[in-house]
Design a protein around this nucleic acid. Structure first.
Lengths: 360, 360
DNA sequence: GACGCGACGGCAATGGGTTGCCATGTATTG
DNA sequence: CAATACATGGCAACCCATTGCCGTCGCGTC
């Protein structure tokens, strides 16, 4: 007789194992979830039987009684933005290490979409990482009341946060531009709902003050390549020699938009971005940018979330801040002495070439 | 007396509602999940009471009795590859429309990681979309036996598949290169475990046969920019005038790698990629590439999966094939008549510049 | 008036672990 | 040797909604 396993249409439960191993179901349960609570020999026997029967613990059933789903939600502002790829990786890794599964939510830059998606998912997850949330502080706090929440790239009182050192990043960028002779920097703003956008601008104000460099802001624009291209248009109306863009995608849009209008980069304008996405190394000229430890952001935030889920207080004091560094490439150069065209640095204005073929 | 809701530490269940509305729990349950099965007035009353008490149906408990989690897994080969962004979006949208939640799994180009992640998650989801799986056919079939599975970018007998029209895409690329005077095309291969890699090569063989263009293959290389750069090295040893790369990332790596070695693109070599990722429009020169309807891929696969979950047979006949188109940019040009340097088209070989600053 | 049928709603089992509490037996301590 | 402590394992309640099955009741029909 080959094997007398039970009818294959029925899944194996702790009761089956219990019968077979001659113990009670609770012992089987404990053998897996709290081995210390049961005699090691018994535990071993149970494990053997379970193995033989092909028993797999049902996470769903476990969930019902423990009300832990062992899932966390990772909410990102825009999956199309490559910055998030590494963040997601970092988060996944940390989650997997902790035996948690990650549900990814793409908010598509919409605070409404973000909110409804979270509402829909919240009851199914043990905690939430909000990466670059576009929601209001109060909305976030409301969620934080119902589930452990860690916020990434944003500082909110009373909610645990992980941020990068924006002030320092801006400072380094400004110093760099200052050393190149620029005495005026234009900030190309991203979404108003974006916290980094605000702090970058404020940091720029401050750094400008200290280093005696004038600053101004244009925007807001959408934090995409297209947004950067639109910013390029506007920039033409109010030329600048040095630009700090909210992020790399906008910076790349600027490079393209300005390039199409015959503006030389970095000859006429120096451009600095944020994030150091892969494409920053691909554009011509290579983009000088403030790099953040993306992977570390994702994993730090997630690890912190997991400790909160396990019951830790979730220290809400100062946000955890991660270091940044300036990556210098070729989109920044010494300020053009602009011989004789002080008022309007960009005199030549060749017609834009036919628009590039476009995406689906 | 302000309000006499039950102690706030306890969540509201159907039993609470049942008590309050003076019906049995089953009626409450039915009032929500099968309104037709209960008197409309009763249903309305129940709904009112539920509303007043702030009752929220617990998806977890529902899951246990229906054994439907209303979640699906979306497995992608590499979240770092921008192609997947749109696929994920399409899938999310379709899933959300069907009231399903998506669990994203990044396989990091590893078939082992892919398998263990799926094993870990399988019992928690109602179905799986496998986008560009790196697993073996048999592994996939095994999963398909346990849960509904739809495979994207790959054709496997007996498993529902969604693919893009690779043969046609390759054909168009070859025609394009042929028209430009190229009579020899080098295919730069991606991962051997990648199904599109295989079919693209076979399609190239076929198209070359018909159009009397010689073809050869080098590789495999990793399907990344770095992989393309390595391919560039190897390509230097065996020069070509026209290259078809497995995907855009490799094509971009080729452009950079060859460029650093002084090879002119498209003057000396024409390059065609696959996928039409955003960066294809950003490199210099713009990359000619075969574009696929990524969003549609994701949503089609997911919608099909959902119908299977709802009990549909999951037609496993021919795979569903989505159209592609060739996007011509500036990385392809008429074949250089190569005056006097027929044997070795790339004579000038300037020293590579210092390596670009690198990522974190 | 007897019978049949459909609408409505309740009972109780089900899904599969988890865990507080108690009982038993063995080991340690004074 | 009595008394207390600890290690083990079982009992049964619990998590919360779903659903097959049955009873009741009102209405229409022959």
């Amino acid at each position: 007789m080959p094997d007398h396993t039970r009818p294959p249409d029925k899944r194996v439960t702790i009761y089956d194992v219990a019968n077979e191993a001659d113990v009670s179901p609770s012992t089987v349960s404990r053998a897996f979830s709290r081995p210390s609570r049961v005699n090691s020999e018994t535990a071993e026997r149970v494990r053997q039987v379970a193995e033989r029967l092909g028993y797999r613990t049902s996470p769903l059933a476990r969930t019902l009684s423990t009300s832990r789903t062992h899932m966390i939600a990772l909410v990102i502002a825009d999956i199309t933005n490559p910055v998030y790829a590494e963040i997601v990786r970092g988060a996944q890794e940390a989650a997997t290490d902790g035996e948690y599964t990650t549900v990814l939510i793409d908010a598509q830059e919409s605070d409404r979409l973000e909110r409804v998606a979270i509402e829909r998912t919240m009851s199914t997850v043990d905690g939430i990482v909000l990466a670059s949330s576009r929601m209001s502080d109060s909305a976030i706090r409301m969620f934080a009341k119902q589930r452990p929440v860690v916020v990434l790239n944003r500082a909110i009182a009373d909610v645990p946060c992980v941020v990068t050192d924006n002030p320092r990043g801006v400072r380094r960028a400004v110093e760099h531009l200052g050393e190149l002779g620029h005495d005026h920097i234009t900030y190309v703003a991203g979404p108003e709902a974006s916290w980094p956008n605000g702090i970058r601008w404020r940091s720029l104000l401050e750094a400008g003050m200290e280093l005696e460099i004038k600053v101004r802001q244009i925007g807001p624009f959408s934090p995409t390549i297209a947004g950067g291209e639109r910013a390029a248009e506007e920039l033409c109306a109010r030329p600048a020699t040095a630009v700090l863009a909210f992020n790399d995608q906008m910076a790349i849009g600027l490079i393209r938009g300005l390039g199409q209008r015959g503006v030389d980069i970095p000859g006429d304008v120096s451009i600095v971005g944020f994030d150091n996405i892969v494409a920053a190394d691909i554009v011509t000229p290579g983009l000088t940018t403030v790099a953040a430890p993306l992977y570390a952001e994702g994993s730090a935030a997630t690890r912190h979330l997991l400790t909160m889920i396990e019951g830790a207080p979730g220290h809400t004091g100062r946000p955890m801040v991660l270091p940044v560094r300036l990556v210098v490439r070729h989109s920044t150069a010494a300020r053009n002495p602009s011989p004789g065209r002080a008022r309007s640095p960009w005199v030549r204005q060749r017609p834009a070439p036919s628009p590039a073929p476009h995406l689906w």
